[in-house]
Amino acid sequence: MNLGKTLLAAFAAASLPMTASAHFLLTYTEEAVFQGTGEIPVKLIFWHPIDNGPVMDLALPREFYMIHRGERTDLSDTLQPVVFQGAENSGAAFLGSVPIRRSGDYVLVTVPEPYYEESEDIYIQQITRSFLSRNGLPSDWDSIMGLPAEIQPLNRPYNVLVGSTFTGRVLAAGEPVAGAEIEIEYIASAPDIAGSATTPPTITPPAGGTLVAISDVNGYFTFGIPRAGWWGFAALGVGVETEFQGKELSQDAVIWVHASELE
């Protein structure tokens, strides 16, 4: 990859008026790197996490599974319905668990049911990946899975350093997508894993609206990481499916990466 040809992320106005945040499907764990073994709780929430904005009802996902050392394990039977309470409203969410046993990467994949966004009269389906690691031993983090929409990380997504950059490649069924609009959002309100609430936002959303990057001719984009925590990247409408129940479908690729300070 020629990093000189990648486009740096730019600040842009939000696509929806009067809002500074975007829809994001979270597969939230408190940490990204683990030393021991056990069942790691994970919360699935469809939300606006940078400003503790509206919560959307999440239906039972079509698929929820992990990839570890190239092997797929279905995690759908771990999902239990819960209510998630945001600052503005509550919504249906799910609490699941990830069995961490061997060292290596654990790639979590969520394929949700399309969500009808009444204000836009379209359906949204955010195919979401997040990444956990035991002992920091790499195994699966950079694999291309051939999903209808996905973002391939070019940096290990569980140990990005604050002040460095994250580079991803937008793909549709394994093929690069040029000119994709990627919305970028920070989890400023940390969900409570055990309860239904969340914390107040730790930052003020950018004055210019949602952060946006555009992929280059080979599907690459780069973003400078300014703060520790979870960062989400959503490539909008890049998937191979464009219609659902007679209406437009925005099939988005979402990836979550975790940044930490160098101590």
Rank of each mutant, 00 (worst) to 15 (best):
F94H: 06
Q85D: 07
G38P: 09
V42H: 02
H68T: 03
I45Y: 00
P61R: 08
E63G: 06
V109P: 04
D51A: 07
T110Q: 12
Q85Y: 07
N52G: 14
G70Y: 02
E71T: 11
L58W: 03
S103R: 10
R101S: 14
W47R: 03
N89T: 10
A59P: 00
N52M: 11
L44C: 00
V111Y: 09
Y106K: 03
L75D: 07
I40N: 00
D57V: 03
F84M: 04
V83T: 14
P112L: 04
T78P: 07
D51W: 05
V111E: 08
D105V: 04
K43W: 08
S76P: 05
R101Q: 15
I67S: 07
G91S: 01
I45C: 00
L79G: 03
L75F: 06
Q80V: 15
I40A: 00
L58F: 03
N52E: 09
S103N: 13
G86C: 05
H48P: 00
W47A: 04
I50D: 12
Y65E: 08
A87T: 13
V107F: 10
R102D: 15
A87R: 12
H68W: 10
E39A: 15
S76D: 10
S76I: 15
E39F: 13
G70I: 04
D51C: 09
M66L: 15
R102C: 11
P61T: 02
M56W: 13
D57W: 03
Y115G: 05
Y65D: 07
A92T: 11
N52C: 15
A59Q: 04
P49D: 00
I67P: 07
P114H: 09
E88P: 01
E88I: 15
K43Q: 09
E71V: 14
Y115C: 07
R72V: 14
Y115M: 12
N52D: 13
D51S: 06
L60N: 02
E63F: 05
G53C: 01
D105C: 05
H68I: 08
T37A: 14
F94M: 06
A93D: 07
R69M: 12
L75R: 04
N89K: 12
V83D: 14
P49F: 08
T37F: 10
